[in-house]
């Protein structure tokens, strides 16, 4: 059994289902990337895993327990962390307060976790008392990831973390995400930059129209001629 698994998920926001029989799973210590064309339901699939939309059919398991009808805030307590694509920081609060809010559910001393985040993202430490809304795009993403890490999640889910940041910042962010994965946290990412993302991924899913089209190791997908032609621009 995987750590987190969504089985044969159907669902969407309105009458029409965006997800049409979509299955995604992730194991401990893995980096899993979900790619696909625009409107394929990548973000929807991730939100479905997190309980941010109601599934019409299918189920979600965490550590072998069914969590299909659990509220997102309860999944946070189970050990799932989520970084949304947009508005993923508390803009009016300082960097440090953002991290504290990430640790809201923890009753123990979390100062070590804060120190860890600052070790991971040294640029944030000197800006710790600046409002997160005043930071650059890349640093905001760092705060967003840092906030999600504060709960000590078993699995960290990132919705297009590199949207709108420069290539240099993107590379750095991917490096950091790999570092996070090395500490044993499972990382799941939805990405537009499919090639770079698959390069760092253990496994990848290619979704088309809400359905699994290909799933394999990152390297295998990169090598697959069909995948390259259809989704990676040749």
């Amino acid at each position: 059994m995987s750590l987190l698994e969504g089985q044969a998920m159907f669902g969407g926001y309105g009458a029409a289902d965006i997800l049409q029989d979509c299955t995604i799973a992730i194991d401990r210590g893995e980096v899993v990337v979900v790619v696909g064309p625009n409107g394929a339901g990548k973000s929807t699939a991730m939100k479905a895993l997190f309980g941010m939309l109601d599934l019409r059919k299918g189920s979600v398991f965490f550590n072998g327990d069914e969590i299909t009808s659990m509220l997102p805030q309860e999944r946070v307590r189970l050990g799932m962390g989520f970084v949304p694509q947009n508005s993923n920081v508390f803009t009016s609060m300082t960097v440090e307060e953002n991290l504290e809010m990430g640790a809201f559910i923890r009753r123990d001393d979390y100062s070590e976790s804060i120190a860890q985040v600052f070790r991971l993202f040294p640029a944030l430490e000197e800006k710790r008392s600046q409002p997160a809304g005043e930071l650059s795009g890349g640093q905001r993403q760092q705060v967003a990831v840092g906030r999600a890490l504060m709960t000590n999640p078993a699995v960290l889910m990132l919705d297009e973390p590199t949207a709108g940041v420069s290539p240099i910042v993107m590379d750095e962010l991917f490096d950091r995400i790999l570092e996070v994965a090395k500490t044993g946290i499972a990382v799941m990412m939805v990405e537009q930059n499919a090639r770079q993302a698959l390069e760092i991924a253990d496994r990848g899913y290619v979704l088309v129209q809400g359905q699994n089209r290909y799933s394999d190791t990152g390297a295998a997908l990169l090598a697959d001629k069909n995948v390259r032609k259809a989704f990676l621009g040749g």
Partner: peptide
């Protein structure tokens, strides 16, 4: 500040 994110933080 951000209702959605507050939920995601377990508030």
């Amino acid at each position: 500040d951000n209702e959605e994110l507050a939920l995601l933080s377990g508030i």
